[in-house]
Design a protein around this nucleic acid. Structure first.
Lengths: 205, 205
DNA sequence: GTCTATAGAAGGATAGAC
DNA sequence: GTCTATCCTTCTATAGAC
């Protein structure tokens, strides 16, 4: 579908996604979005009333997508080890295609945590949590994973794949000084991350 | 020293630090900073000329502080294991006292990576890197750490302590749904993080 | 050095023609 | 539905009195 075939509302939404994820809510200008969409500024208001409504539409789409996309991995019929390997391959690949999303979401949620409530309300966190804990009886027991350590482990797993993208600006600058390529680092990270986590949870030491 | 004893320039700087770290460059208003400092708006311009110069002063102070504060840990006369334990205790405690710094720095650096260049230029990254690698001959060899894995390991170590603060808004919302207290999580993380990393790098599996 | 007042620019939003 | 023109508010920055 070429740009000219797209309906106006969709063109606006796509342009807004691009501009908001790059500049944030405060930094984005309605004029930037109109230019990006190739339409007039007042059309933004015709379709979305206010800047805030337009932002919310973009934010909710991205956030819901992000949160619902990877939770199912942990419900697959795989060994815990394979789940972890599968997760990092898929998750880091997804972030390579959408490198701005982590920084965008983290920043806007910190700035206005209320926005996240709606999305969280639509997700069944308790069910996901119960599902995770249910694995305790099956597989987690053979590792040294107790129920109360699951939040520490889950947030660590997420940190290892998400943080390099959130800190991309820092990493790229530092890597350049010691002759490391950021893209190569990311490719290697898919396997390193899985190895690292599996070794940590397997170790009895 | 009470507020009224502080010199005006210092009051402005402190107020700007507070407002910028909370709202970011784009979101911060000169009026907010003046109010916070308890002075008139035009005094900001008298001391710092423009909003951008004021922001740069704040940013450079914070960034330089952040980067130089913890690198020396890895040059201490401790075993690698003790260095890791010491680092997480100190680093997470520091972030508990300054919880907004990670999100602030990550966001502003991504938005304008050029700002970081000046700070990085003043740090001797190559020397820090050589120092890290020098440990290869001493201690790292007995673990399965090769020179080319050091960037993966160092970024992972950082991710584990920094990410919970960068993602604080998300974590707090999710934790609330399953009855976990964020502050308790952070306290437990000091030890969990060290254990996790040490187990991962010690494991021969 | 500190204030009041205001200039000057930018951005969000709307009215109204087509 | 889409455009032009413009209003109105907000914000940075400066001029000038004290």
């Amino acid at each position: 579908m070429s740009d000219s075939d797209k309906q106006t509302e969709e063109k606006i939404f796509d342009a807004a996604t691009e501009v908001f994820t790059e500049k944030g809510l405060d930094g984005a200008r309605m004029q930037d979005i109109a230019d990006q969409a190739g339409i007039n500024k007042s059309l933004l208001h015709y379709y979305y009333r206010t800047k805030d409504r337009l932002f919310n539409a973009v934010f909710e789409k991205i956030a819901a997508n992000m949160f619902s996309k990877f939770a199912p991995v942990f419900d697959e019929n795989l060994s815990l080890e394979d789940k972890i390997r599968f997760f990092y391959r898929e998750h880091i690949s997804f972030l390579q295609r959408n490198p701005r999303l982590p920084a965008f979401l983290l920043n806007e949620i910190n700035r206005n945590p209320e926005r996240l409530r709606k999305i969280i309300a639509t997700l069944d966190i308790e069910k996901f949590w119960d599902m995770l804990c249910a694995q305790n009886g099956k597989e987690l027991e053979e590792y040294n994973i107790t129920r109360e350590k699951i939040p520490q482990i889950m947030t660590t797993i997420a940190a290892i794949s998400v943080f390099p993208f959130a800190a991309r600006g820092i990493f790229e600058s530092l890597f350049k000084k010691i002759g490391i390529d950021f893209d190569t680092y990311l490719e290697e990270r898919k396997e390193f991350a899985a190895d690292f986590v599996i070794k940590a949870i397997k170790s009895k030491v």
